[in-house]
């Protein structure tokens, strides 16, 4: 092959790239398309964050930078109360569903027992069942339970943070099970035999070998449960009682009246929290 003199002008270079196959029309189209998809995905979020800092009180135009909306947010007792409720519910439901989910995953991964296959199928059901169905079911169920309690003890109970928490636990468990099972599948059972061989009893085998090695999976499950709880709307709406609403519900109520940059501000904070959690989980996975 005879080498041509090096192309100098830009257009010649592009022509050269085409003729050498480094640049193709399909390649260009693909790049353009990818850029469009990313704009589609991220433009609304970027605008949301941007307009949480605008002076414009309708939050639709950029009229200069301010932190007023954040300050107002922190001085808004309803919003702060809802945020606190959300954090409490998310924390409690995460802890409980992570423990239950991990134990369940271990039982399903390790033991053969009657009805295991049925259990296997049923544990994933809450993931595919439409959330509205879950919510209605939980609402109806809580009404029944309250009736029974009233009949037995004469006590009248109302929906409160505890009922929402139980609802969140109910849908989080399945997700925890899925994540923890994946790390149990990758866990080499021979390590447990090796530990037993070296004199470890079941307690030591679990806490010294199994647990540290599946911990990234457990943390992954917990983070998933936490984020799911943070932004859950439907179940929270159905199961929370008066005066105990959670942040997504509170935001919705505010939005129905008017979209203010305050809403943008709280959304931005939630965004940062979720991203921090994802980053944390990535960091923990990488340490392995």
């Amino acid at each position: 092959m005879i080498k041509t003199a090096p192309a100098t002008t830009a257009s010649a270079r592009i022509r050269g790239a085409f003729s050498e196959g480094r640049l193709t029309w399909s390649g260009l189209a693909l790049t353009g398309f990818s850029i469009l998809v990313y704009i589609f995905l991220y433009a609304p979020i970027i605008i949301l964050v941007l307009f949480s800092f605008t002076r414009d009180e309708f939050g639709v135009r950029w009229t200069g930078f301010t932190l007023d909306w954040y300050i107002r947010l922190f001085n808004n007792p309803r919003m702060m109360g809802a945020a606190w409720n959300t954090l409490v519910v998310a924390t409690v439901s995460t802890i409980v569903s992570t423990i239950i989910g991990t134990l369940l995953a271990m039982a399903m991964e390790r033991y053969r027992f009657r009805g295991r296959n049925a259990m296997e199928g049923l544990i994933y059901l809450p993931i595919v069942v439409p959330e509205i169905v879950m919510a209605v079911a939980l609402l109806a169920f809580s009404a029944i339970v309250f009736d029974v309690i009233k009949m037995v003890t004469g006590e009248t109970l109302r929906r409160n943070l505890a009922t929402v928490t139980i609802g969140h636990i109910a849908f989080s468990i399945s997700f925890v099970v899925v994540v923890v099972r994946t790390s149990l599948k990758n866990f080499d059972r021979r390590l447990e035999e090796a530990a037993a061989d070296l004199g470890a009893d079941n307690w030591n085998i679990f806490w010294r070998i199994t647990f540290p090695l599946i911990l990234p999976g457990i943390i992954g499950g917990a983070l998933l449960a936490f984020t799911l709880s943070l932004d859950d709307f439907i179940i929270s709406l159905f199961l929370s009682g008066p005066g105990t609403s959670l942040l997504p519900v509170e935001v919705y109520n505010r939005v129905r009246r008017a979209v203010t940059p305050e809403i943008n501000a709280i959304s931005t904070l939630m965004l940062i929290l979720s991203m921090a959690l994802v980053a944390l989980s990535q960091l923990l996975q990488r340490r392995r």
Partner: peptide
């Protein structure tokens, strides 16, 4: 196993990672 006076070297080594 943990009460037997023997130890094993596994084919895969089974070292604790």
């Amino acid at each position: 196993p943990h009460l037997r006076p023997v130890n094993t070297v596994f084919q895969s080594y089974a070292l604790f990672p």
